[in-house]
């Protein structure tokens, strides 16, 4: 087991280096100059420009810049934002709980709805229920997030006025945030209506972000269940005279969940990519919106560091999913 983990971690190293190169190159390939953008409308003299270039080290050859950047990473230093002058890592840490909260709620929403939907569709295979669910899943799967988010905002915020349009909580509330998770902090604050406000802010973005994972999970659950329901051990469970709920919900689902959990894990990457759009639509102050803003400001260190952190996160989650896979599948655990 320990060796397995080490092996997996060593496999991550080349991927990580690859990501660092992509992150470094991507932002430099975009037209635009961070120092000119810093200066804004007023512009600056040529001497001042050369001086700033030197301060930030952008006058040196690219290879040297990259080496410098890599050396920093190895020492745990991701650089400093040229816009806010704060360390990239600490900015990330402040904003990340917002993204985590949103992604977590999205995946919980997707799994809580997708797994039962997939199970019912499989049990009632070919029925109108099955066809409706799978048709909807196909639509959900190919839904452009941006368009879908705007549609929900127009309907629920604009026309019905049920939910707020942006942010994590109403401006009426102000309280310390020890955990960074608004749902928890608003409960801890004890302020009346704070939690409700946090939920109402979270609900639309979570649905938007969870839509694609929901469709994927429902389809995967259905196909896994269809396969498992034909297995001999399901017949054995029936032959024991167990109630259908136990046969389907325990004997079949327990086996079907093995591929489903893998798929949920793989959705983390999709989720973080989706978070960038979703956070932008809903002005959700998380790392997704932070990245987009930084790209517009050509904040090189933030884009490089942020991409690297997000990629690292996805890799770690995938590793955890692999380990979890061994845990839920006894056949692997014992080999």
């Amino acid at each position: 087991m320990f060796r397995f983990v080490l092996q997996r971690i060593s496999l991550l190293i080349p991927t990580f280096i690859g990501v660092s190169i992509v992150a470094f190159a991507f932002i430099r390939l975009l037209p635009g100059d961070p120092i000119l953008l810093l200066a804004g409308e007023r512009g600056m003299t040529a001497e001042r420009y050369a001086e700033l270039q030197q301060v930030y080290g952008y006058d040196r050859p690219l290879l040297v810049q990259y080496g410098d950047y890599l050396w920093g990473i190895l020492q745990g230093d991701l650089g400093t934002s040229i816009v806010t002058k704060r360390p990239v890592l600490s900015e990330f840490m402040t904003l990340f709980p917002a993204t985590l909260e949103l992604s977590f709620c999205a995946i919980v929403f997707a799994a809580a709805l997708g797994i039962p939907a997939g199970v019912f569709a499989a049990v009632k295979r070919g029925s109108w229920f099955d066809q409706t669910i799978m048709g909807t899943a196909l639509v959900g799967y190919s839904m452009p997030i941006f368009w879908w988010g705007l549609l929900l905002i127009i309907l629920f915020s604009g026309i019905l006025g049920w939910t707020p349009v942006s942010g994590r909580i109403s401006l009426l509330y102000y309280f310390p945030q020890p955990t960074g998770f608004m749902l928890i902090d608003s409960l801890l604050s004890g302020q009346e209506g704070a939690f409700k406000s946090a939920v109402s802010h979270l609900i639309l973005p979570a649905i938007v972000l969870g839509t694609i994972p929901l469709a994927v999970i429902a389809r995967q659950t259905r196909s896994a269940m269809l396969e498992v329901l034909g297995e001999d051990y399901v017949r054995t469970a029936r032959a024991k005279g167990l109630p259908p709920l136990r046969v389907v919900g325990l004997h079949a689902l327990r086996n079907a969940l093995i591929p489903v959990i893998t798929v949920i894990g793989l959705q983390v990457g999709v989720l973080l990519a989706g978070a960038i759009l979703t956070e932008t639509i809903f002005s959700w102050p998380g790392v997704g919106k932070w990245m987009v803003d930084s790209v517009f400001k050509r904040d090189y260190p933030v884009v490089q560091g942020g991409l690297l952190l997000i990629a690292g996160l996805v890799m770690v989650v995938n590793l955890i999913v692999d380990l979890l896979y061994g845990l839920i599948n006894p056949r692997i655990r014992h080999n």
Binding site: D232, R235, T236, A237, R238, A239, L242, P243, P244, R331
Partner: peptide
């Protein structure tokens, strides 16, 4: 009723199958 039938099946009448390896649930 389905419930009464389940009491007979597995209780008074039991069945074993051709493929013992795949007839047991691998997860339990």
């Amino acid at each position: 009723s389905p419930r009464a039938r389940r009491e007979v099946i597995g209780g008074d009448v039991a069945m074993i199958f051709q493929e013992p390896m795949s007839s047991l649930n691998p997860c339990f």
